[in-house]
């Protein structure tokens, strides 16, 4: 992987909510203010936990969307009790944050365009990479359930969007019906592209399809994996992803921590059949 020379320092911070508002029918934008200046690399995440009586045994991992000074931004979807509690909180509510954590997406490579694929709540790391690094020949595709689930205000106009079910779109914006990988396939087939790099985040089927899409072209593909986590910093081994072991047959794979070795992995090293 094209690693960064320096990874921003991880900090354990006190924080409070500054913004916690829906940006689409399913996605909520969270902005927090932390007690120190923060930096991150796209693909990295932070563990957030509530303070007070609703503090959980473990924090929850949230992919970082943006960071500026003491402000850190996330996008999330309510998936369980922890995110459910978070969605009900008003600005000012105290939190703790441990971050940034994990291995980021690779840096852009000159002469190698990037194809970005994101689905649903997988948007933040891909959008963060776009904002930090995108060049004119990079392309991005984003898929959601329906147009109401698309955070149109956050989505760059050059991005192509796809939906599972059609519905009303804002003036001047279009959403294709179908899978995001099919949309990318359709848009890129026939184009004379140099070897590119695929970066993907979203549901497992999307990531697997992104891997096949890249493999068919002989391109590199990096995917952002998601797993339930305990600590988020490599201490507990509670969030492992089965990956290939160098030079070993597939059955002889090994467990890699999603939080530390990941969450970004090469698609080809993941043992997809063993993923729940």
């Amino acid at each position: 992987m094209n690693r960064f020379e320096t990874i921003p320092k991880t900090r354990r911070c006190q924080a409070f909510i500054t913004i916690n508002e829906p940006v689409s029918s399913g996605l909520i934008r969270l902005e927090i203010e932390v007690d120190q200046e923060m930096d991150f690399l796209p693909g990295q995440f932070a563990m957030l936990n509530l303070m007070g009586p609703r503090k959980r045994t473990f924090g929850r991992p949230f992919s970082i969307l943006a960071c500026s000074g003491n402000r850190v931004e996330f996008l999330y979807r309510v998936v369980g009790g922890g995110t459910g509690d978070l969605a009900g909180l008003k600005p000012g509510h105290p939190l703790t944050m441990l971050g940034p954590l994990g291995t980021p997406f690779p840096a852009p490579v000159p002469g190698q365009p990037a194809v970005l694929l994101a689905g649903g709540v997988g948007l933040p790391p891909v959008l963060a990479w776009w904002h930090r690094f995108s060049r004119t020949d990079d392309r991005a595709f984003f898929g959601a359930r329906d147009p109401g689930d698309l955070p149109w205000d956050l989505l760059p106009v050059s991005w192509d969007a796809s939906v599972d079910a059609q519905g009303e779109t804002p003036v001047g914006r279009v959403a294709w019906q179908g899978l995001v990988t099919e949309l990318a396939e359709r848009e890129l087939t026939g184009m004379d592209l140099p070897p590119s790099m695929v970066l993907a985040c979203g549901p497992i089927p999307l990531l697997e399809a992104a891997g096949r899409f890249a493999e068919g072209r002989g391109w590199d593909c990096f995917v952002s994996m998601e797993e339930h986590m305990g600590c988020g910093y490599g201490a507990c081994k509670g969030c492992v992803i089965p990956i290939r072991s160098d030079g070993q047959p597939e059955a002889e794979g090994r467990n890699a921590t999603c939080c530390q070795e990941g969450p970004i992995f090469r698609a080809e090293e993941i043992l997809w059949k063993q993923i729940r």
Partner: peptide
């Protein structure tokens, strides 16, 4: 079991 082998987290800081 809760802090790996003691080589994890050396670079993490907090106030």
């Amino acid at each position: 079991g809760c802090f790996a082998y003691g080589l994890t987290g050396h670079e993490i800081s907090s106030r």
